[in-house]
């Protein structure tokens, strides 16, 4: 039992060390500006354009349900016109980046881990190395850069769609005065709320990329190894997003004076 625990801790520490080295190496490689533009554009297309339906549906329905639930409570104290302000502030700084991060972790993080994992088990990553190509330069950097660029944009999109959907529900379904609804939303939503959301999106994008690449590049043998790497990349990225969100909220809240 004790030796099992020691082994688990040793493996965990080893994994953390590898992840840190991968992050360090990828960050250093970013600044050599050797990234192939063709690969980067394809990755941005894959992350950004191909995630449109997922992000639009997530943003829209989150905004809609949040508006309906907030109305259910606020109507009791006659604060109907503050509904969109709640939707707006919470979508900008929390729900927008977190839910977009989780959806991208499920779609893109899993795809990265599966693709790189398959390359690992079929010796394609070794083949890259024999062709004098560093796998981090060729595989990790374009994905990391694409996610860091695309995630804030996807987050902004989810925020905009979420607020729009909340507005539609408030005005057309719940009969709230549109002028006061919009006025309160603008009054209580500041630039710092939007900035916090976009910065969180950037961090979450980096996390999804690094965890997906790490799980793929260090996956176990065979189809089972690839399957496990894919599942773990989604689970670990999601947990990391949820935990880091709390700390980012505290840190960014202090920086922007919202907390």
């Amino acid at each position: 039992m004790i030796s099992q625990g020691r082994k688990w801790i040793a493996e965990w520490v080893e994994g953390l060390g590898r992840l840190t080295l991968l992050t360090q190496e990828a960050t250093a490689s970013l600044f050599t500006f050797k990234v192939a533009w063709k690969d980067l554009i394809y990755q941005i297309y894959f992350v950004g354009v191909k995630s449109q339906s997922v992000v639009l549906i997530t943003g829209a329905f989150t905004g809609m349900v949040l508006a309906a639930q907030t109305y259910a409570q606020f109507h009791k104290v006659k604060m109907d016109t503050a509904v969109l302000a709640v939707v707006s502030v919470s979508t900008c700084s929390e729900l927008g980046p977190v839910l977009t991060g989780l959806m991208v972790a499920g779609r893109v993080g899993a795809a990265i881990a599966a693709e790189l994992g398959t390359m690992k088990v079929t010796e394609q990553i070794d083949a890259l190395r024999t062709l004098a190509t560093h796998p981090i330069d060729y595989l990790v950097v374009p994905r990391l850069l694409a996610l860091v660029i695309a995630m804030p944009l996807l987050t902004a999109e989810a925020i905009a769609v979420g607020i729009g959907a909340g507005y539609v529900v408030g005005v057309y379904l719940l009969d709230i005065d549109p002028v006061y609804l919009w006025y309160n939303a603008l009054k209580y939503t500041g630039v710092p709320d939007v900035a916090v959301g976009l910065i969180k999106g950037l961090f979450f994008g980096g996390m999804v990329a690094i965890i997906g690449c790490y799980k793929g590049m260090y996956c176990g043998q065979g189809a089972e190894g690839v399957g496990r790497a894919t599942t773990e990349s989604v689970v670990y990225a999601s947990i990391t997003i949820l935990i880091s969100n709390f700390f980012l909220t505290l840190i960014l809240g202090r920086i922007f004076g919202t907390l």
């Binding site: 010796e123 394609q124 083949a127 190395r129 024999t130 560093h134």
Partner: peptide, 22 residues
């Protein structure tokens, strides 16, 4: 790994399952 890239320019390798980029 980066120093090895320079040495690997001297090598070519053919893999058991070819390891072509699919």
């Amino acid at each position: 790994e980066r120093q090895l890239l320079r040495v690997r320019h001297k090598f070519g390798m053919v893999f058991q399952q070819a390891a072509l980029f699919d």
